[in-house]
């Protein structure tokens, strides 16, 4: 029993370390866009759309708010925090839901409309933003009516999509390392690959958890 327990802790510790590492990388990426400038980093190849009055506000809202969505990853999955410091869980939850519903998802949808790579990647990013908004909203509504199980399921899905910021970039790095594809080819691929496996993993996890529950193998 202790063996299983320490195995799980190792897994948790590994996940936390990975989150720390990738959050640090994401912070560095986000800080490229501080202070505001219309022609840095990614914007260097968006010069055909930056003249739209709505583009740069949406872009900057997205990059300046989205980083904070990784922070709940450190608190919201902890049973201890939920039971011993519920105020922290609620505060982080409010931050997470507010940032996604009011800022990150709508701005993500708007910049997704003119994403590089044409229709395939535009569809992917807009769908991602839509589902992100939807799952987060459903998770919020579930807890407001006291449905903890649904709250948990929807926010797991939502966070899986939040992690696409990391997984998209990791896939890109890996595919370039492996195959050296053309830059927009890889972009169109990771626009989908960045979030669909994440979502599938959560659905699979929830599915097996339900199965365990039904057969009574869960504590």
């Amino acid at each position: 029993m202790t063996g299983v327990y320490s195995g799980i802790s190792f897994l948790k510790a590994g996940a936390l370390l990975a989150l720390v590492f990738f959050s640090f990388l994401m912070l560095r990426i986000s800080l490229q866009y501080v202070p505001y400038a219309p022609d840095v980093a990614f914007l260097r190849i968006k010069q055909d759309v930056v003249h739209h009055s709505w583009y740069l506000p949406a872009f900057y809202v997205h990059v300046w708010t989205s980083f904070f969505l990784l922070l709940p990853g450190f608190t919201q999955f902890s049973e201890k925090i939920r039971s011993k410091i519920p105020a922290l869980h609620r505060a982080m939850g409010r931050l997470y839901v507010t940032v996604i519903l009011l800022f990150a998802a709508p701005s993500g949808f708007v910049i997704g409309l003119v994403a590089n790579g044409g229709l395939p990647s535009r569809l992917a990013f807009c769908l991602l933003a839509g589902l992100w908004f939807l799952y987060t909203l459903m998770g919020l509504r579930a807890i407001l009516r006291g449905d903890v199980a649904q709250h948990r399921a929807f926010l797991l899905r939502s966070f899986a999509l939040s992690l696409s910021a990391i997984t998209l970039r990791a896939w890109k790095w890996f595919l370039v390392f492996l195959l050296a594809p053309r830059p927009m080819d890889v972009y169109m691929v990771v626009a989908w690959l960045g979030w669909i496996p994440n979502l599938l993993a959560v659905e699979l996890y929830l599915y097996y958890e339900r199965g365990k529950k039904e057969t009574g193998h869960i504590e």
Partner: peptide, 15 residues
């Protein structure tokens, strides 16, 4: 512009 972007970001985790 695209050369510089590729040099900075093509094979890295980022942008």
């Amino acid at each position: 512009r695209y050369e510089e972007h590729a040099a900075a970001y093509y094979d890295s985790f980022g942008r």
